[in-house]
């Protein structure tokens, strides 16, 4: 009985509908590309597609769960990439220190966001819009419009180009998956993760229950900045060039994946498994579209359409769930005139 109910819950769950979408997309594109979609190399490409987006999406999801949004993640990541490239080419410091420097830069930008939101009470939407704008400009000042090429850095080449298992498994994919799993466990299992949900669900009530929403907000904005900088560094490692807007467009992809995965824009609801599946849906789609030879730039159309489809399916599911529960309760309850007295 209990198992039956939970199985039914699973089949009407967000996770399940996302898995359906992934499967349907795979099938569709496999048919359309005459099987080119499912060869191992292409599966790798699907995950590779996901790498840059994944860090941004994870950061966005965690922050959104707490009730805020970071529109500067793309700018922070790009800026951190510029810092990395400059440090590598100009400073003469060891490469690993340059990476740490870039990530510290991202985290510091996150701190600025947190300060604007918590100390000056800006809406996160507005605060991050400001920082995004400023950072984009500063990045351009540092690098210029041509971008900065990075040559001859061993660590960078290793990180960007190493592939394990006969070229099937790039290091960057491993890093991305590790991050997703670690954040998933933190959110679902730990006290810290719980406090994210509680503060996101109702900041004031959480504070009165002994949590520290302000402190948490600082941590999460800094975390978002940190993850953005990781994303930016990986981009530079793969492409070997830093641009002032290298990963800006990925930011919206990351947000889309989180929302598609069921993370509530109001905070307090959603999880990492949904977020991961959201990324997968997008990556499969982009990959399929590219494999079919459709212009990569058309993908934003699909971005929007997928989001509408995903959320629409959600609404239909919720209604179905309600109707089923209703029938069940009608069947289970005694006849109307079965009243005592």
């Amino acid at each position: 009985m209990k198992n039956g109910a939970s199985r039914r819950d699973f089949f009407t769950s967000k996770t399940f509908s996302l898995m359906l979408i992934v499967a349907a997309l795979m099938a569709l594109f496999t048919a359309l590309t005459k099987g080119a979609m499912v060869n191992p190399l292409n599966i790798r490409n699907i995950f590779k597609e996901m790498t840059i987006m994944s860090f941004l999406s994870v950061g966005a999801a965690v922050l959104m769960l707490s009730g805020d949004v970071d529109l500067s993640a793309g700018a922070i990541g790009s800026f951190a990439g510029c810092v990395l490239a400059l440090a590598l080419m100009e400073s003469g410091l060891p490469a690993w220190i340059c990476y740490i420097l870039a990530m510290l830069t991202g985290t510091a930008c996150g701190f600025v966001n947190a300060f604007l939101v918590n100390a000056l009470h800006f809406q996160s939407f507005i605060a991050t819009l400001c920082t995004s704008s400023v950072l984009g400009g500063v990045g351009f000042m540092l690098i210029g419009g041509q971008g900065l090429k990075v040559k001859g850095v061993a660590l960078l080449n290793w990180l960007g180009d190493t592939k394990l298992l006969d070229g099937l498994l790039p290091v960057t994919i491993i890093i991305s998956l590790v991050f997703i799993i670690v954040y998933g466990v933190i959110l679902a299992k730990t006290r810290f993760g719980r406090s994210v949900y509680l503060c996101g669900g109702n900041r004031q009530a959480a504070y009165l229950s002994g949590l520290y929403p302000t402190k948490l907000s600082y941590i999460l904005f800094m975390n978002s900045g940190f993850l953005a900088s990781v994303s930016g560094c990986i981009y530079v490692s793969q492409v070997k060039t830093a641009y002032a807007n290298s990963i800006t467009s990925y930011q919206f992809t990351g947000l889309t994946a989180s929302i598609l995965g069921g993370v509530s824009f109001m905070g307090g609801a959603g999880g990492m498994s949904g977020c991961f599946l959201g990324m997968l849906v997008l990556s499969v789609f982009y990959n399929g579209v590219t494999t079919m030879g459709i212009d990569y730039n058309y993908r934003t159309i699909f971005n929007g359409v997928l989001l509408v489809l995903g959320l629409g399916l959600d609404a239909v599911n919720a209604r179905r769930k309600t109707r089923r529960a209703l029938r069940r309760s009608l069947a289970a309850s005694p006849a109307p005139n079965g009243r005592e007295d």
Binding site: L198, G200, N202
Partner: peptide, 13 residues
């Protein structure tokens, strides 16, 4: 609603 419940979360939480 304002200070008490964390509405999107469960009874146990």
């Amino acid at each position: 609603k304002e200070q008490g419940l964390i509405l999107p979360r469960s009874i146990a939480e």
